[in-house]
Design a protein around this nucleic acid. Structure first.
Lengths: 111, 111
DNA sequence: TCTCTTAATCGTATATTTGCGATATAAGAT
DNA sequence: ATCTTATATCGCAAATATACGATTAAGAGA
């Protein structure tokens, strides 16, 4: 049981679900907000702003990184993060595609 | 530990995160797709289309319902589901607000 | 009434997520 | 060389999510 059946769905569905998952926690939305405001290159500043421990923030950053939404580069003793705008726009478009698709499909079915 | 710290974030962040969570599983995206295609009133048809057991589909439907994205009405021995387009548009707009907000904040920070 | 169909719910197993403290790592400062 | 600072990672605990089969509930039809 509890086998992972996610791969039985379409690639598009999986990709959208993965993106949604990446932003499915308020902490990660807050992180994106901080990164957008400061343009790039913030590290422990995020920890100061969020009500979470450093290790927890680090974990959330890792997830955003894995999802491709942010980039992280090591800059001396600290880490520099920034939004990957290219990936961000891609996802934003995919989202709107999904929304529009649902609307269009419904219009066709309706009348 | 593992205390839920979600409520320490802003209402907007929580609400967006909750919506993202609702569509963070391919099965739930697939369900929305089916509901859009058939306009409304589908029940066990979803089970036929998805590679999941009836009880699992029922659970996913419940989550979408809790998130407010779909409505379910009992129609005799069967259940009738449909997308709650009002809520859907609300979320769609909130999403685009988030995306635009991040873009604007970044432009200001940039130069 | 009894049966069939449809769907929700319960119980259970397993997997994943969330969170923290402690520890490791790595670069800069002293 | 050692100390400090910044972050990542490890190990753990608790909570949530995912999935299924079995059971329940409720209307439809014989």
């Amino acid at each position: 049981m509890a086998f992972n059946k996610k791969e039985e769905f379409s690639t598009k569905e999986q990709s959208l679900a993965a993106f949604a998952k990446a932003i499915s926690h308020p902490a990660r939305i807050a992180i994106l907000d901080v990164l957008a405001k400061k343009n790039e290159c913030i590290c422990g500043e995020i920890v100061d702003v969020l009500p979470l421990a450093q290790s927890t923030v680090s974990q959330h950053l890792k997830e955003l990184k894995n999802a491709g939404l942010i980039d992280g580069t090591i800059d001396g003793p600290r880490s520099c993060y920034g939004i990957n705008w290219k990936a961000f726009e891609k996802f934003s478009n995919e989202f709107n595609s999904l929304f529009n698709n649902l609307r269009v499909k419904n219009e066709k079915a309706c009348c």
